[in-house]
Each structure stands twice: as structure tokens, then as C-alpha cells.
Amino acid sequence: MIDWLSLLIVAVVSVGVTALFALLLSTAIRLLSVARAADDSRAAMPATVGAWVLLGLIGVMLLIGLYLIIPQFH
């Protein structure tokens, strides 16, 4: 009667997605922080680009969330 497998899947996916979100967000914030602290704008470029790529991935995650929430999309 109790669907333990579904519960396990929900638990694994929830923890995994949240951990991925935290990883992307924290790394992006760290890179941005490093870039802003750098004296040379040229040296800050890789960190800035990396940060915005990660923020873009976070944006994609949020859009997937929106896709899942809005019933008209699926």
C-alpha cells in the first residue's frame, strides 16, 4: 500500500537537485566575488564569465521548475 520506491525516488531527486542548485549558486557567487575583488579587469574576466554561465544554468533550472508547475506546458 505504501509506495516506498516513489518515496525513495522523491527523496533522492529532491536532495540531488537541491545540492546541484546550491553548488551552482555558491560557485557562481564565489566567482563573482573573486572577480569583483580582482584589481585587473582582464584577470577578472574568466571568473566573471564562469559565474554568468553558472547563473545561466540556475536560470534554466528555474525555467524547468516553471515548466513543471504550469499545467498548460505538459
Partner: peptide, 12 residues
């Protein structure tokens, strides 16, 4: 957010 969406779409 992740847990709510996972629970809504994965059957528990």
C-alpha cells in the same frame, strides 16, 4: 521548491 516539484511529479 525542489521537494515540492519532485513530489508532485514523481508520485509521492
Amino acid at each position: 521548491a525542489a521537494t515540492i516539484l519532485a513530489s508532485a511529479h514523481l508520485g509521492f
